[in-house]
C-alpha cells in the first residue's frame, strides 16, 4: 500500500521518455561519437592505426608521406577515443554525432581523403 501516492502522481504526469525519431535528447558535450578528420593537419604517422584496440583504422597508401587518408570501420570501432588522445597534431577527433546505423555494412566505413604533400626538393647548393 506504500506506492499509491506515487502511482496517482504518475498517472497524471507526462511520460519521462521521449518519442525518439521526432524528439531528440541533446547529447552532452563530451560524448564520444562519429569520427572527424582534418586532412590539412594529418602527417600520416599512423599512430592512430597502431594504438586502435580493435584495429578499426587503416592507413591508405602506407605511413608517412605516402599516406592518402584513413579508413575508419565504425562496425569495429568501440569509441574509446584513444586515436584522438594519441594524435600528435589533433587531426582526428570524435564528435557528438550518435546516429550511426546503416543499411549496408560498407556504408559504415568512413573514407577520409588526404592529398599527400609533394616530395620535398632539396635546393642544390650553388657554388
Amino acid at each position: 500500500m506504500a506506492m499509491e501516492r506515487e502511482l496517482l502522481k504518475n498517472a497524471f504526469s507526462k511520460p519521462c521518455t521521449v518519442i525518439y525519431p521526432f524528439e531528440k535528447l541533446e547529447p552532452p558535450e563530451g560524448l564520444r561519437g562519429k569520427h572527424e578528420y582534418d586532412p590539412e593537419k594529418c602527417i600520416g604517422c599512423g599512430l592512430c592505426a597502431r594504438i586502435c584496440p580493435s584495429f578499426s583504422i587503416t592507413l591508405k597508401g602506407g605511413p608517412g608521406p605516402k599516406c592518402t587518408g584513413l579508413l575508419v570501420d565504425l562496425g569495429k570501432c568501440l569509441f574509446c577515443g584513444q586515436c584522438e588522445e594519441i594524435c600528435p597534431r589533433d587531426a582526428i577527433w570524435l564528435t557528438t554525432e550518435y546516429e550511426l546505423a546503416v543499411i549496408n555494412k560498407e556504408d559504415g566505413i568512413l573514407d577520409f581523403e588526404r592529398t599527400p604533400p609533394p616530395p620535398k626538393t632539396t635546393p642544390k647548393k650553388v657554388e
Partner: peptide, 10 residues
C-alpha cells in the same frame, strides 16, 4: 556527462 559514455566510461 562526466565520461562521454553511458556504459563503458573509459
Amino acid at each position: 556527462e562526466i565520461s562521454g559514455n553511458r556504459v563503458n566510461y573509459a
